[in-house]
């Protein structure tokens, strides 16, 4: 076969026979591999390009880069392909996970990616482990945007959107299918369970009983389990938006990893998971206790006049990222600096 567009040479690796839907090629100009993704219906090309442009503008690290668009003839057929970045790595359906921090960080990355896709106004439509890859640096990449609808792998899925088992319930049964970004939310949670070995049934999903995810996966963090259950709600409107799912998962990755430096004129203390409470007292002016609950530093007890960045402190108040605590309303007063830091969760 001659070079495509004078630069792309098929390597013979194709995910679906011959000139199938996804072909690996060598880009002769840059001596690197790229993926040629066939667009079956030429009328879909403008929509796909628009989606790709929207995604490029977001510069998400979880989305594969569009490099080129090519048209050529093959076996007397007009072929159009998107040329996409080739990511070396492993598809998630080939990886084994257990409910640990690596799993949670993977979920957080997927959720972040989907929420970025949604922020671009794009709905993926076919989130499943086979469409998500972990690259050699551990970065999650999401593939196959909006193509599910036109290129079903078999007759059963041809007329509808997505892959049975991962598809949201609202996609079943009606002729005119209207859907929202919440279909990706459902598929995300189904994917999360599949990664733990809970494979989906090849049928329209049924409502799950509250608490069943945690019951089946006791190793799972309770908050993550509750989030996944909410994502699997039969009603699309009841599912949380993906940015909230990502935020929750990210927050949990930092559980018990924060530190607070508490600096008085005489001494500096550190609060962290192994030392959770500090009691501060100054003469007869006042006192307070601050406790670290794994996510936040909160005031748990208080006497006298205490201010945090000049706001009157109250029990239950969450400490700000960097603040000054003042004990006493008139001199002599004590000033205590309070600064929270944490490792960065970064893909």
């Amino acid at each position: 076969m001659p070079l495509i567009a004078n630069r792309y040479e098929p390597t013979g690796n194709a995910s679906w026979g011959g000139m199938g839907e996804l072909n690996e090629c060598e880009d002769r100009n840059l001596s690197r591999k790229v993926m040629l993704k066939r667009v079956f219906k030429p009328s879909d090309l403008p929509r796909l390009l628009d989606e790709q442009k929207a995604l490029i503008r977001l510069r998400s690290k979880h989305v594969v880069q569009l490099l080129d668009v090519v048209s050529f003839k093959w076996n007397n057929q007009d072929i159009r392909c998107l040329v996409l970045e080739h990511i070396q790595g492993t598809d998630l359906d080939k990886l084994n996970f257990k409910a640990d921090e690596d799993y949670q960080k993977t979920l957080w990355q997927i959720a972040t990616g989907i929420s970025e896709i949604h922020a671009a106004g794009v709905i993926h439509r076919d989130i499943k482990p086979q469409n998500i890859r972990r690259d050699q640096n551990g970065i999650i990449k999401i593939f196959d945007f909006g193509l599910a609808r036109e290129a079903g792998k078999d007759d059963k899925t041809k007329s509808i959107t997505g892959t049975i088992g991962y598809m949201a319930p609202e996609l079943f049964g009606t002729k005119t299918i209207s859907f929202t970004a919440a279909i990706d939310t459902f598929s995300f949670a189904r994917t999360a369970l599949a990664l733990l070995g809970v494979q989906p049934h090849n049928e329209k999903p049924k409502a799950i009983v509250a608490g069943s995810v945690i019951a089946a996966q006791p190793g799972l963090n309770a908050e993550v389990a509750r989030t996944l259950e909410a994502c699997l709600d039969m009603s699309p409107a009841a599912r949380p938006p993906m940015f909230e799912v990502a935020k929750l998962l990210g927050r949990d990755l930092l559980r018990d990893k924060h530190r607070a430096r508490v600096g008085t004129q005489k001494q500096a203390y550190e609060l962290n998971a192994s030392k959770r409470t500090v009691n501060l007292t100054f003469k007869n002016q006042g006192s307070l206790s601050i406790r670290y609950d794994g996510y936040d530093f909160k005031i748990t007890a208080l006497t006298g006049n205490v201010y945090v960045n000049n706001t009157k402190a109250s029990v239950g108040m969450t400490m700000l990222s960097a603040c000054v605590i003042t004990i006493g309303s008139a001199a002599p007063r004590a000033f205590v600096t309070f600064d929270i830091s944490n490792p960065e969760v970064m893909a």
Binding site: H258, R259, S321, A322, D339, I340, S341, N342, P343, E344
Partner: peptide, 9 residues
């Protein structure tokens, strides 16, 4: 670096 505790704004 992933173990460093810091605050970025």
């Amino acid at each position: 670096c992933e173990e460093l505790c810091f605050h970025f704004a």
